[in-house]
Design a protein around this nucleic acid. Sequence first.
DNA 1: TAAAATTGTTTAATCGATTAAACTTCCGTT
DNA 2: AACGGAAGTTTAATCGATTAAACAATTTTA
Lengths: 342, 342
Amino acid sequence: MTKRVSLKDIAQKVGVSTALVSYVLNNKKQDRIGKEVAQRIRNTAKELNYRTNLIARSLKTNKTFTIGLIVADISNPYFSSLARIIEDEADKYNYTVVFGSSDEDALKSGKLIDVFLNRHVDGLIIAPAEDTIGQILSLQQQDIPFVLIDRYFPECKTNHVALDDFKAAYKGVKHLADQGFSRIGMITYNNGLFNLLERKRGWLAALKDSGIAFKKNWLREIGPGPVKQAVEKALQELLSMPQPVDALLFASNTIALHALKHINAMGIKVPQELAVLSFDETEAFDLFYAPLTYIRQPLQEMGQAATRILLESIGRNNKITQVNLEGELVIRQSTSRNPGKR
Amino acid sequence: MTKRVSLKDIAQKVGVSTALVSYVLNNKKQDRIGKEVAQRIRNTAKELNYRTNLIARSLKTNKTFTIGLIVADISNPYFSSLARIIEDEADKYNYTVVFGSSDEDALKSGKLIDVFLNRHVDGLIIAPAEDTIGQILSLQQQDIPFVLIDRYFPECKTNHVALDDFKAAYKGVKHLADQGFSRIGMITYNNGLFNLLERKRGWLAALKDSGIAFKKNWLREIGPGPVKQAVEKALQELLSMPQPVDALLFASNTIALHALKHINAMGIKVPQELAVLSFDETEAFDLFYAPLTYIRQPLQEMGQAATRILLESIGRNNKITQVNLEGELVIRQSTSRNPGKR
DNA sequence: TAAAATTGTTTAATCGATTAAACTTCCGTT
DNA sequence: AACGGAAGTTTAATCGATTAAACAATTTTA
């Protein structure tokens, strides 16, 4: 590898000090610097194809122009789409994104945060896993800029960008009720993530407001462990009750995916025998024979907002910004009372 | 932000020089260092919660323990899955991954490479876009370690990890022919990427070996621009010919996705009216009413191999490793001659 | 017992940039 | 002519770690 060109090389060639070169290339002290030398420095820099050594700069300035992104799983389309949006937005401001997947595991999350801080990221965008509130509080105490995305802790005054999960769930379930479905169940995860609780709360509220008496066994909460089996079991149970549910809300795309596969395998007719509605968007929903009604999250807005809030926060802005965006209910065949003709 | 603890702080507290502290914490000169001081240094380091400043270390050692990953689009499940695997594998060796999407655009790709080199990544894993061979050669000249993934340039002696695309396509098309389909078309991209050409070649070879006379208009190559419209148009044409195709090979998951949506919308019966077979895997294929036959790429192996080859290469290993893995044909309903009963 | 070798530790240069402060010139003003 | 200030540039410290080389103290060897 041919040695990289440094400030010193330019300084030597032009016959000035490195300080002057630095000032010129960073456009500082503009008014004080001789026009002619400045030009010569600039030319030489171009000629030698000089590139700032960002490592050295970072060491001095304590800034890396890097942001860390921690999601549950980068291979989940929800998060990879977000990652893409954040990447593009960060790039606009010359930031680079490093990423890591927490696997919804507090230990891994902690390790990732550590690694990223060790690498001196300027800030973090985090979709916090369960039981990581301690890590978040610790970031806050250390005054490290960060923004929570997708999930957050209501008891914690931090930047966040997320859905209004209550409203979104409410809207979806209300739609089901309005269509005439009267036994509306839900499959969600058995964990304490606030946004999932909100979705549950929205579901319950919509049932209530629709005059539907909620039955306890309409709700299935799947625990940690393999999702596939748990979802299949839950579906099985929900449909084999004396009075089975006639509609289902899935709390995430992963749950929906497994459920739909099983529904396909069992030959259950959607929406005639069972209407289905899911959170999140994925291309897969379009390919299901009865295209899925789903709650679309405004990913573009979320990703951009999170990035901008983070960058503002890095810029020594101390105010806290909390954004809850509204989900859009995309109504399609899977929740239709009269699906008949295509 | 409370000031970070530095070597100096430890040195001061223990009453030794920073050199000694550095030696101890890096386990260098083990035999020369007093056991008792070493222990005191280690204790103090732990006590003060010392973390190496990686920026400073990088500046001195010229190593960042970072690898750059450039894919076409991180939000494409194919690439995000790869990214996840690479992330996990890199983590095992304490490397961090930074990523960027080239959008199949040579300019963007060049810019990303630049940004990553500027940040002194130790090496790159790249799914090269069309017309980026120049960038690749330039990396090679600069002796920068890199591995191409998914695609490569056969005329270029570089590390790569990819599918044996010819064989994979051949296998798939042969399967179609064996099932009795005799008018087997293909939709691919109209670009010069070697792996796509190989897929085309495999398709042609399988046709030939199956005694099928290839008709020119069975092939649709979609150009740059919006994929959706192009795929729909291609499908339309392929099916409205006097003698329409009875089976189709899609060269990528994106093409397949758009095609399947259109097939759904048009009410075309798969596989009765049209058998379909696609490259790549995505959950969406499972939800199509006739689960898709597809060519599964061994992503896990690919990602791990790419990462390991890169790390070896970073470790001053000059040999070139080229890996072409075999795809697995996952046969399901979409290519069945007797789909009847489920 | 003097020279040589070993052991334990420090000195100081270095990586490449940033930047406050100091230092020359030169000019205009009084 | 002397002084103040502006203009243009350099000096030198600094960020935090790494590491070859030097040094001092002790032990071994001949």
